[in-house]
């Protein structure tokens, strides 16, 4: 009934997405390095993208895929600026640990 592939329903994809999202959340909670936290954020974004594509497949519309496209765009922009900031921080602080980087100004 809700199959989007043979023997694969939308729920399978949602479960997968939940798994990836939760892994990402755990990563952010447990790791202190800004770079790896950043990557976990990307993972969470991708989990969301996956559900969007699955629903696009379910409904047969292009809107969700366009949405995914924009999420990719924003993620790319975010990474460009975020990594530049991290580079600056490292250059000045010689660390990327968020335990140390807890002030707005040095």
């Amino acid at each position: 009934m809700m199959e989007i592939l043979p023997n694969v329903t939308i729920n399978h994809y949602l479960m997968l997405s939940v798994a990836l999202f939760t892994i990402g959340a755990f990563g952010i909670l447990f790791r202190r390095n800004a770079i790896i936290m950043f990557m976990c954020v990307e993972l969470m974004l991708n989990a969301v993208n996956l559900t969007l594509v699955a629903f696009s497949k379910l409904w047969g519309g292009t809107d969700a895929q366009v949405f995914v496209f924009f999420i990719m765009v924003v993620a790319a922009a975010e990474v460009a600026v975020g990594l530049a900031i991290l580079m600056m921080l490292y250059r000045n602080m010689h660390t990327t640990s968020t335990d140390v980087l807890d002030k707005l100004k040095w």
């Binding site: 959340a25 952010i28 909670l29 202190r32 968020t98 980087l101 807890d102 002030k103 707005l104």
Partner: peptide, 13 residues
């Protein structure tokens, strides 16, 4: 606002 990112993320979650 203590600057600890974990706190923020915890609050968000």
């Amino acid at each position: 606002q203590n600057g600890k990112m974990v706190m923020y993320i915890l609050a968000m979650i």
